[in-house]
């Protein structure tokens, strides 16, 4: 039950985040959408590892079969990498804001078409 609810939630979260990643025009809003989509992907893997009535993958912690520990090991590193790439992306956004004075994607594209700013 918990596993299925988790999978459903993960799919909805991934869709929600992905939608905002594509439709929003402000770069920081896009990054927030990416954040939610990534958390959906992580939840998807963790929910897949769950079995009904299973215990945590720690020896001697309750009865019953253990959940699959491999997805947990995968997403543990993915969470840390998410943070690192987010920091790098924010540095690029700060760069754009300092040099082009805008965070709007449409505006940036229009400036590129008009050939502004001149080097």
């Amino acid at each position: 039950m918990e596993g299925l609810a988790g999978v459903a939630l993960a799919i909805v979260l991934a869709g929600l985040g992905f939608w905002h990643l594509i439709v929003r025009r402000n770069l920081i809003w896009k990054l927030l959408g990416l954040n939610v989509a990534a958390s959906g992907a992580i939840l998807f893997l963790v929910a897949l590892a769950h079995r009904p009535g299973a215990r945590p993958p720690i020896v001697g912690l309750g009865p019953g079969p253990s959940v699959d520990p491999l997805p947990h090991a995968l997403v543990l590193t993915a969470i840390v990498i998410d943070f690192a790439t987010l920091a790098l992306a924010l540095v690029y956004v700060i760069f754009l804001t300092e040099h082009r004075h805008t965070q709007d994607v449409d505006r940036l594209e229009r400036d590129e078409e008009r050939g502004w700013p001149q080097p």
Binding site: E2, G3, S39, I42, A49, A54, V67, H72
Partner: peptide, 12 residues
């Protein structure tokens, strides 16, 4: 935590 993943919960 409810999905029996305490390691992932702590990291998240």
């Amino acid at each position: 935590l409810f999905l029996a993943a305490p390691d992932v919960a702590l990291t998240q």
